[in-house]
Amino acid sequence: MATCTVFLFLIVFNLYAFGFEEKPLNFVQIGNKYGYKVEEIIVITEDGYILKLFHIISVKSVKTPVLLMHGITDSADTWIIRGNNSLSLTLAANGYDVWVGNCRGNKYGRKHIYLDPDSDDFWDFSFHEFGYYDLSAIIDTVLYLTGSKKINLLGHSQGNAICYVLTSTRPEYNNKINILIALAPICFLQNLQPPVSKIIEVSPKLDRIAKLLNLQEVFGDNSLIVNILRKYCRIPFIGYKTCILDLLFSLSGDDIDEFEPSFVSTFVDHFPVGTSEKDLVHFAQVSLRRKFANYDYGIQRNIEIYNLTEPMEYNLSAVNIKVALLVGANDKLSTIEDVALLRERLPNVVKYLVIPRRKMNHFDFVSGLHMEDYLFPYIFDILNTDTYTEN
């Protein structure tokens, strides 16, 4: 009993002691810190969401614009928090015209022209809207501001799924993208492992509980649970073991060498930063129904919305853009088996690569310590190959 009391005291003490951290730098401030000028551009979607788009200005930028799109509960920050070793700044340093987007619901997309972000209507979206509305508006903005006819798109995790949504539902956007470089591609979710598979199994029950509690926003940047998480994860030794070794690695695959203890504070300052409960449910439906399809509202509402009893599948055969699939052998979220299903369905896969690094997990693609060694050479090879990226 005494041991438990001492342990609880230490946790409370450390939560208090580490509770006075400075407010983390935003994307523009991080870019400035490393010597880059960054523009912040406001994008307004067709349905009224207000998103922040970042442009890293480089005097050497003469190449086709490169747009980076983040994964679930993430933001543009994921592409820059490793500083000069991050992908966005590495691309800029090599003369690429770099643009970094955000989807609605994260800390850079929590505004609307008339909806209150604390209202239920604001959070009535999933990854379908990320693709159909957000990505389309971002691409059009980049093309308008640069005068370019096409972009090169790099997506991490969900940042790939939204491209399949966009190009299958609005086929004209196939002509606006040279290539999608899909890092840790997410589409089919049929071969997940515990604990993710177990969470998905009980997701219908969790969804019912969330609706009873009227929980629309999850893992919000300023939410109580995220603030507690950030303070706890900073506790030396205990925080790293619990938050990274036990929690994050159990979900994404373990890779101690690429996620050092000193990176914990930076990581949790910028992840997670919010999405809708509906977004998580939609991905769970994709897994449970074994179909990459529209959101399932139930038979009655499906008839009202789709005039069908079941939501239609996204037509991946209509995704005509070139796609390069880069996969991690140790990725528990984007498994080799599920990416194989995606590869079979996409008509124009120009490159498929399992990264040779055996421990490559889901987050190594955006925040690994040595990305410049095991990942970036493949990305530059694709971007510099005319047969992959020519207009």
Results as ranks from 00 to 15, higher is better:
E22L: 07
V98K: 02
R358Q: 13
R345D: 11
Y232P: 00
I139E: 10
S61N: 14
G159Q: 10
Y232H: 03
L143N: 11
D386Y: 10
N84T: 15
G368E: 02
C163E: 02
L87N: 01
I379V: 09
M360Y: 11
K322V: 02
E277N: 08
D246K: 12
S58L: 02
I80E: 00
A284V: 08
N348A: 10
L10G: 07
I30W: 00
D134S: 04
M371A: 10
F127W: 13
T387G: 03
P272N: 07
K37R: 14
T146R: 11
L143C: 08
F9H: 12
E277V: 01
C163T: 15
C163I: 09
L91D: 05
I177T: 01
G155M: 07
D338P: 00
D134G: 12
G147R: 00
D120V: 13
E258H: 05
L67V: 14
D386V: 12
K359Q: 14
L135H: 06
F125V: 04
N85R: 10
A137C: 09
L316P: 11
W123V: 09
W99L: 09
V12I: 15
Q216S: 05
V38S: 07
L183R: 02
I72H: 07
S334C: 15
I113P: 04
Y240Q: 08
N214Q: 12
N160V: 06
P117L: 06
F376Y: 14
M69H: 09
G31I: 01
D97N: 15
S88E: 07
A324K: 00
Y36D: 10
D140N: 14
Q216A: 03
D364M: 02
P272C: 03
F380M: 08
P171Y: 01
I179C: 03
A92P: 03
S367T: 14
L51K: 11
L25I: 00
S203Y: 09
F125H: 05
R82C: 08
F365M: 07
L115R: 10
T169P: 00
E21F: 08
